[in-house]
């Protein structure tokens, strides 16, 4: 969902978010698209850096979705991160958008979770309505693309024995008798065979 698609419906969305914030006593809420571009912010916008919060939340969400994919799980629908004072809750509204709630310990986690689910349902209806009205097709965000197949076992060791380059410096003696990787014997020319 892009801001341009929401158009005049933004007031309605903001209104619902504000009601939610008042009810659960959250500090603020951010709604952004799946890429982290902000659609709206509400609440005590104080000194928070919303642009970066949204971008990082999108990154967090995308990687989480990737992990879920790897584990064969549909998705982790709700991400909760607990700090010492402030907490953050990230969730998605289908493939329309991501919602980020910042709240402190004045709010009760269970209530925030419950009301967030309700808010998501309300916003989903609005988004669906917008999509229907405008004939927009929301492509499923390609958040995680795993391009198989997996690597096969490593290639055979290079057969030819590379000659030592005369201009290379002798290797420094390892300290503490620890093993060191023998870089001097690694011939970068070997790599030519690989491409």
């Amino acid at each position: 969902m892009k801001l341009s698609q929401i158009g005049g419906r933004i007031e309605e969305i903001n209104h619902k978010i504000n009601d939610f914030i008042a009810e659960v006593q959250a500090l603020c809420a951010i709604v952004c698209d799946m890429g982290g571009e902000i659609l709206t912010t509400q609440g005590d916008t104080g000194m928070l850096d919303f642009v970066n919060i949204a971008a990082m939340a999108a990154g967090s969400f995308a990687t989480t979705k990737g992990i879920a994919n790897l584990l064969g799980q549909k998705e982790f629908s709700l991400l909760f991160h607990q700090g010492t004072k402030n907490n953050i809750l990230i969730s998605n509204i289908e493939n329309f958008s991501i919602i980020i709630i910042v709240f402190d310990n004045n709010s009760i986690l269970g209530v925030v979770k419950q009301k967030t689910t309700e808010l998501k349902d309300q916003l989903k209806v609005v988004f669906e309505d917008i999509v229907k009205g405008q004939g927009i097709i929301i492509k499923k965000a390609k958040i995680f693309e795993e391009r198989g197949p997996a690597a096969q076992p490593a290639a055979e060791p290079a057969k030819k024995e590379p000659e030592k380059k005369p201009e290379e410096k002798p290797q420094e003696k390892p300290k503490d008798g620890k093993k060191k990787f023998d870089f001097d014997s690694l011939m970068v020319d070997d790599l030519d065979d690989l491409f």
Binding site: D33, M34, G35, G36, A55, A58, G59, A62, T63, G66, N95, I138, K139, K140, A141, K142, I143, F144, E145, E146, R147, G148, P149, A150, A151, Q152, P153, A154, A155, L194
Partner: peptide
């Protein structure tokens, strides 16, 4: 034999996010 799986974390418009 030289490659593993590739991950692309991208938006619906295929921009890296």
């Amino acid at each position: 034999q030289y490659k593993g799986k590739m991950i692309a974390l991208a938006t619906e418009s295929e921009r890296t996010l």
